[in-house]
Design a protein around this nucleic acid. Structure first.
Lengths: 199, 199
DNA sequence: CCCATATGTTGACAGTGTCCACAATATGGA
DNA sequence: TCCATATTGTGGACACTGTCAACATATGGG
């Protein structure tokens, strides 16, 4: 942490860590490059030796978040009972975001850019979802179902982080996610009208 | 547009309109209060007579977006074939966001705040979804299904605005949304394992 | 040992959100 | 009608931000 000499040692990583902390305490909107440098105990311009500009630092942070959530998802999928992967993956994504809401919001905000590395990280996440869908349904799930499950996970995460959706009292987040995913994926049985291929 | 005298007439509305334009051209991150004032042909401090601060203006904009998307959704639900409301509502939300991506992103970013008026607008949107679910399934849909459909719509919107999810070539957005929603809601039939109430 | 390179610092500039004092206009009661 | 007063817009100022250019300091290969 504290520097001994003129040089820092591993500022690049230190900046990421400081930003990771500040994005939770100050929120993604208020995160300033200068504050990150301050937190790392370094002059306002030092970051420019490691990141082209503020957007690059934030992109690295978003990338970090995406890779981290992907790891949580693969771990959850591996530990899940067979046939339960879809829920396990969704719950992992939700838990990760709820544990680091600032990072999640920053990541969402940066998914709209066209950074190829972020795009690649998103594709990796999507691949995990596709794998989980395939494992749960037995066969290789159709593309449409993969997209739907991914969107469902993403939407649940967004709404839970917002506070727009709240588990009932005495209901854990996991239980809420399980109930919601299950109700959604089996809605067709209860409402056959929606099933008909209406062109 | 152009002012005649010292006073503007209806600056409050004019600022909203300018902001609505700038949020699309400059993006929600780059939107500056001073630029909005400039666009409205007024001094940098004039907005403070109508909005407490920048956040208040943005909140008003987000509110506007939420009310607008809600109107699109009720119109779509009213015009939908019976039993098709869930898809109609989802597609309306997606179309609205794709037509105004800047406003959509700003709205998403402001849903995490605790502004009660935004919270109320979100609840109104959720009510429309609940109505659509009830209409499609016949009975009053279970809360879990409403939450799932809402999350699915929100997630689809997010991923489509990002570009993370893209319709296949020669597939319209509506077709993509319909296929995805249908595949998701009927997944249980294809994968009975996921149906079992696994506690 | 010395110099090229990587890394950190200082100073500066434009732009931003916001506060304050002030000016111009609208409004309503005498 | 006239003027006190509230409403609305302006100008100036301040702290802060992202970023650039010039400079200082360490580090490692010849």
């Amino acid at each position: 942490m504290s520097r001994v000499g003129y040089h820092h040692g591993d500022l690049r990583a230190s900046l990421l860590a400081s930003a990771l902390e500040l994005v939770e305490t100050a929120g993604p909107e208020q995160l300033s490059l200068r504050a990150v440098a301050r937190e790392a105990g370094v002059s306002p311009n030092a970051p420019y030796n490691h990141y082209a500009d503020k957007a690059a630092l934030l992109a690295a942070l978003a990338l970090h978040g995406l890779e981290q959530v992907r790891e949580s998802m693969v771990a959850a999928a591996a530990a899940a009972d067979p046939g339960d992967e879809i829920f396990a993956i969704t719950a992992a994504a939700v838990r990760h975001a709820l544990a680091r809401p600032g990072l999640y919001r920053l990541t969402v905000a940066h998914m709209c850019g066209d950074d190829p590395r972020i795009r690649a990280a998103e594709d990796a996440v999507r691949a995990v979802v596709a794998g989980g869908v395939a494992a749960t349904t037995g066969g290789s799930g159709a593309d449409a179902l993969c997209a739907g499950v991914w969107a469902l996970a993403q939407g649940l995460t967004l709404l839970l982080v917002d506070g727009a959706l709240k588990p009932a009292p005495h209901q854990t987040v996991d239980d809420f996610v399980r109930a919601t995913v299950q109700a959604t994926l089996t809605a067709g049985a209860a409402a056959p009208v929606a099933v008909e291929g209406r062109r």
